[in-house]
Structure formats: structure tokens, C-alpha cells
């Protein structure tokens, strides 16, 4: 069980959350300008990093906010969490 620190509600058990995959993958501003390869890269390619990983979570059963969690994918240690407001 992961105790996930919602930036708003504090630490909650993982079954209150939905995982949203790797963070920091912005949607291309002009998709039509991309080659098929570039679009596929945005669509499908993920780093699947071993160790420090920035990922999106949503506090589905709580405040419904999406936020970014930094997690070590080897130890499952959670290194921090930030709201989208913080990072922009």
C-alpha cells in the first residue's frame, strides 16, 4: 500500500487515487505539424524510469485534483508531491 501525499488533503491510502502515468508530457501545440514518428513518440513512448520518477495522480475519491508525485520506482519511496499550480 502506498501512502500518497495529496498536496491538498495530505497522505491518503492509494485506493483513493487514480494513476495517470508519467508527468511532464505536454500535448504538442500543433499536432498536424508533427511527423507520424513524432506523434507516436508523444502518444506511446514513455521512459519507464528505474528510480526517480515524476508521475501524475488524481485524488479521485477525495478532492479530484490531479497533481505530480515524485516516486522512486525501485523502493516505492515517495519523494514529494506538487500541484500543477506550483510547477507552472
Amino acid at each position: 500500500m502506498l501512502l500518497i501525499p495529496c498536496p491538498w488533503c495530505g497522505p491518503r491510502e492509494d485506493d483513493e487515487f487514480t494513476f495517470g502515468g508519467e508527468a511532464d508530457i505536454p500535448r504538442p501545440a500543433d499536432p498536424d505539424a508533427l511527423t507520424d514518428e513524432q506523434w507516436a513518440d508523444y502518444l506511446f513512448m514513455r521512459d519507464n524510469r528505474r528510480g526517480h520518477h515524476r508521475e501524475q495522480w488524481c485524488h479521485t475519491a477525495g478532492c479530484r485534483r490531479w497533481f505530480v508525485v515524485e516516486r522512486d520506482t525501485v523502493t516505492n519511496e515517495i519523494l514529494g508531491a506538487s500541484t500543477y499550480g506550483d510547477s507552472q
Binding site: 485506493d15 483513493e16 477525495g62 478532492c63
Partner: peptide, 10 residues
């Protein structure tokens, strides 16, 4: 107050 899970319901 808190929104959470109570058994299997929000």
C-alpha cells in the same frame, strides 16, 4: 471534513 472511501463507496 474529508472526502474518502467508506467501505467501497465514496
Amino acid at each position: 471534513c474529508a472526502q474518502t472511501l467508506l467501505a467501497r463507496a465514496q
